[in-house]
Amino acid sequence: MSIDTRTVQNVARLARLQLSPEELDPCAEQLSRILTLMETLNGLPTEGVEPMSHAVDIRLPEREDQVCNGDQREALLACAPDTEQYHFRVPKIIE
């Protein structure tokens, strides 16, 4: 399977990764090669096989409904690139 630069651009947009025009062709070429490798899977019949999402089959644990986290505002905001009045600050979100 070979993918074109338009697809690459679309995927990069979905993934929020800026790609320069020079990066498009090599990227398309590499992804195409990897996808070709993946297509060997088509040689294996899988009708009726249950998809496997988890490495081990365990029961989902549930925790008690208890408040156990203190206020970690200062510590978490200290990690942020930009804050203002106890908020994370980002460029204007245009609705």
Binding site: R63, E64, R73, L76, Q85, Y86, H87
Partner: peptide, 23 residues
Amino acid sequence: VANSQICPVCAAFPGVLPVLNRE
């Protein structure tokens, strides 16, 4: 008050994991 009820899990910091509330 803003951001006073957050922890690494709900703020999605690196490496944290969700645990479901039974209630």
